[in-house]
Design a protein around this nucleic acid. Structure first.
Length: 460
RNA sequence: GGCUCGAUGGCAGAGUGGUUAUGCAGGGGACUGCAAAUCCCCGUACGUCGGUUCAAUUCCGGCUCGAGCCUCCA
């Protein structure tokens, strides 16, 4: 398998340290509000990677954290006048609901920062002992100058960075680039007792500590959004490497590109944030997932008004092939080589999808029962690697369309189809066509097939 | 200003030093009472200017435009 490693800037052959236990850590959300479509690109992309790895290796240990202590959470809690737990449990639950709708499988571990405070404190103590960190005025800071490789992951020159000095330099910092590992909490803020007084962890140290606790000193794959390369991952790398006596922290760094909205960054200030829970009111989760997988994960993905309808029509085609195959005998045929090869080539989902459509075409043309059975199984298995095609075609086609609110219910549709069948039998095609046109106007498309008339909701 | 990554047909989006994926949309045909679905066939591409080469969309350089990071951010 080939993976693009941010640390080297190249695609590399992936060789796990231990094929019995491939380890992957992906930065998860800070739960202080509802997440938008861009926030779900990493969970979906790395979910596919986990599926591909699990197929190839006997053991995979995948961790994705939930950050449940953070200044934005504190601010949200203060605004509502509640404990931070109210905020974090609400948005963590929403995150899980969205993930389920998007077909993202649970990870092996989902560590929370508030459950790893002792590990975080212990790691900070080690960094102080090793001379990489220092305490000052209730803070503990990582001293960047003690780690010669700092800046290597993000390919930044620290001297130039510091010269740029857009960071406000706190008086307790030895160097402007030093970043906080622990900061003091005032009595009104959440905090934990520590050797440096009551306080809370900085943002970067949590991931280092949780990755160590769950996956060990050196992990195989570390993933996240492209924006995390600097400073978050650069800092994680510095902390973990120094805390582990110079051992490599992550062997492969993977970063996904951003989702843009009509070519603009998605941000609250631009007012173009698309919340997944809002999208789910009008679109199947499976279509949203496919939308996120239509582009290569490292490229920016532009989300526009056509993305969901396009994804829906693609799924119509794939599910249509499965439906037309009919009730075929079960087969344990696996995804085709070319399909798996595409995914193992740095997770080339567009190329894999092309193979999926080739498979659907072949299935549509298949004549023998054995061939249909085998191809349908292959299509299902390939789909499962992408986390798609897990439902029955009947269930898929019965999903309401974007304009489903005004569409007739299934019972009414079946009644009209029966009337139309009678009209057809009597060769009253005018009446039959009238019924079909009426249904079409109301968002229902009907199709006559050898197995009888079937219907589905369509976008108006 | 520094760094990173892009620029492919109407839209989305892979890939390749010479034969130009895939899906949607469009055109033609088969099938159908008519449609739809399905199958077959067909247009419209590789930002721009140079360079390397027998040959470049593909390699190199300049330019233009775009996205991201340098500050919380998936």
């Amino acid at each position: 398998m080939q993976l693009h490693n941010t640390a080297t800037g190249h695609k590399e052959q992936f060789e796990p340290q231990d094929p019995q236990r491939v380890t992957m850590y992906v930065c998860g959300p800070t739960v202080y509000n509802y997440a938008h479509i861009g926030n779900y690109r990493p969970p979906v992309v790395f979910d596919v990677l986990a599926r591909v790895l699990r197929r190839r290796y006997p053991g995979v240990s995948y961790a994705r954290n939930i950050t449940d202590i953070d200044d934005k959470i504190n601010a949200a809690a203060a605004r509502e006048g509640v404990e931070i737990g109210v905020i974090t449990s609400r948005y963590a639950a929403a995150f899980h609901e969205d993930l389920a709708a998007l077909g993202v499988a649970p990870t092996d571990h989902e560590p929370r920062v508030t459950e790893h405070i002792p590990q975080i404190i212990a790691m900070i103590e080690r960094l102080i002992a090793s001379g990489n960190a220092y305490a000052a005025e209730g803070h503990v800071l990582f001293q960047v100058a003690t780690y010669a490789d700092y800046g290597q992951l993000s390919r930044r020159d620290t001297r130039e960075m510091l010269a740029g000095a857009r960071v406000e330099v706190a008086p307790y910092k030895k160097d402007p680039g030093d970043f906080v590992l622990w900061k003091p909490s005032t009595p009104d803020l959440p905090g934990w007792d520590s050797p440096w007084g009551r306080g809370r962890p900085g943002w970067h140290i949590e991931c280092s500590a949780m990755a160590e606790a769950l996956l060990g000193d050196t992990i195989d794959i570390h993933g996240g959004g492209h924006d995390l390369v600097f400073p978050h991952h650069e800092n994680e790398r510095a902390q973990s490497t120094c805390a582990h006596g110079g051992q490599v922290f992550a062997r492969y760094w993977l970063h996904n590109g951003f989702v843009t909205m009509n070519s603009e960054k998605m941000s609250k200030s631009l007012g173009n944030v698309l919340l997944v829970r809002e999208m789910l009111k009008h679109a199947p989760g499976e279509a949203i997932r496919l939308g996120l997988l239509t582009g290569h994960y490292r490229q920016p993905l532009d989300w526009n008004d056509d993305t969901i309808p396009d994804a829906r029509r693609k799924l119509d085609r794939l599910y249509g092939a499965l439906r037309d195959a009919g009730a075929v005998a079960p087969s344990d045929a696996k995804a085709p080589e070319a399909f798996v090869a595409a995914l193992e080539d740095d997770l080339n989902t567009p190329a894999a999808l092309a193979e999926l459509f080739e498979l659907a075409r072949t299935l549509n043309k298949a004549e023998s029962a054995e061939e249909k059975s085998r191809l349908a199984a292959q299509l299902r298995d390939a789909g499962s690697l992408l986390g798609l095609l897990h439902q029955s075609p009947q269930a898929w086609f019965a999903l309401p369309s974007a304009h489903g609110d005004g569409a007739p219910a299934a019972a009414e549709i079946e009644g009209l189809i029966a009337q139309r069948a009678d009209a057809k039998k009597a060769k009253n095609f005018k009446e039959a066509d009238r019924i079909r046109d009426e249904l079409k106007a109301r968002g229902v498309l009907i199709e006559d097939s050898a197995q009888g008339t079937r219907w589905r909701y369509v976008d108006a």
